[in-house]
Nucleic acid binder design. Structure first.
Lengths: 211, 211
DNA sequence: GTCTATATATAGATAGAC
DNA sequence: GTCTATCTATATATAGAC
């Protein structure tokens, strides 16, 4: 056959990305050298740069890998959730979808690193921004529908509330990255409790007295 | 008088730290060169290293500057809050104390960078860990007292709840660092609302005995 | 205390053989 | 596609004059 299967080329790329992700998570982008990536991937410098044009492209590719492996892409699952006729249940599914990665030990530090790098890398910033906008739209849509269906407090602004829902989810990653004692899986119920109490309508007409 | 007032030496150090903080916030630790710090501080390389032994020491010093300038140090204010006889009010004061810095535009990215750097810098990790432990103790103590006083849900575990209170506060910094549209000052009331709904006792019977 | 000049090292990326 | 060898740039930190 002609042309070395593109499948093999793709597999090799994935292997490099996997090795690089570990390093970037442990040491950050700048302190991870291409030489280390070569060693971890078991190949030479000349070969590494045959697969990726530069170090930054490797980092980007880690966050571009979407769908393909799983049956359904994240975007598809978000879209399907938005169309649900039980917005609250759909919201809980979205929360589960977005928190799943936090259980993977490399994800939290990797996400932190990506956020920091996005400050000085417009391309990465745009990439993460698109992801975040997608998630924000999905959550805000569900919150609006849930409010209309009487499932949550209708007084909440869907946009602001969605921002905080995503912030709480992000806390799972930042806390895991910061505090070695923090176990995302164990804290998931607390996260759900906070969301429920925050979003569910105030019990009666109780107005908490604040001085 | 004696030579070289220590005051002048200290002022010069502070000036370097101020200049360096801006750069570290904008470009991160690794991508900020000592040459840039020299330029921003208006001095030569040889002189910069007269004030600090190395680049990392400059970064550390930014997070060590505590108290001295303000009338009362953060540790003192936390200790005083813990002794309050109105735990809920004291908790709100602690929240205000810990969120104040988020309004300073350089603080959020700087905090993010510190967290990331702490992963590979044990000394910095210890420094931030001490700060965080102090805050966690203060909040957990106040939550336990507030529960005993019937001000919040007594079913909450003070340790876990304190972790999430601090996580919510941290969200103010991470969101500000991530999303240019996020205005910490404007979102502070939402943060307070979430805390109130999360922590206050389940609606049914218990109500705060405050009058 | 402040400067200029530079030692030292290490990084990312490329060239070109096989 | 994969390698070895290396170019080029740039960074931290130091030496030593003033």
């Amino acid at each position: 056959m002609r042309k070395v299967d593109p499948a093999k080329h793709r597999a090799r790329r994935q292997y490099i990305l996997h090795a690089a992700a570990q390093l970037f998570a442990a040491k950050g982008f700048e302190r991870t050298t291409t030489a280390e990536i070569c060693k971890a991937a078991g190949m030479s410098s000349g070969n590494l740069f045959h697969y990726f044009p530069n170090k930054r492209a490797i980092f980007h590719a880690i966050f571009e890998e979407d769908g393909a492996d799983s049956g359904e892409s994240k975007a598809e699952r978000l879209a399907r959730a938005q169309a649900s006729d039980d917005p609250w249940a759909a919201l809980l599914e979205v929360v589960e979808l977005l928190t799943a990665d936090a259980m993977n030990p490399v994800a939290p530090p990797l996400v932190m690193e990506a956020v920091v790098q996005a400050h000085r890398d417009p391309e990465l910033d745009a990439l993460l921004g698109r992801d975040n906008a997608q998630e924000h739209t999905a959550v805000a849509t569900l919150l609006a529908k849930a409010a209309a269906a009487g499932q949550i407090d209708p007084a909440l602004d869907p946009h602001d509330a969605a921002t905080w829902v995503l912030a709480l989810i992000a806390s799972l990653y930042t806390s895991a990255a910061t505090d070695p004692a923090f176990r995302p899986a164990a804290q998931l119920p607390v996260l759900r409790l906070i969301l429920q109490r925050f979003l569910k309508a105030p019990p009666l007409d109780v107005h908490p007295p604040r001085a």
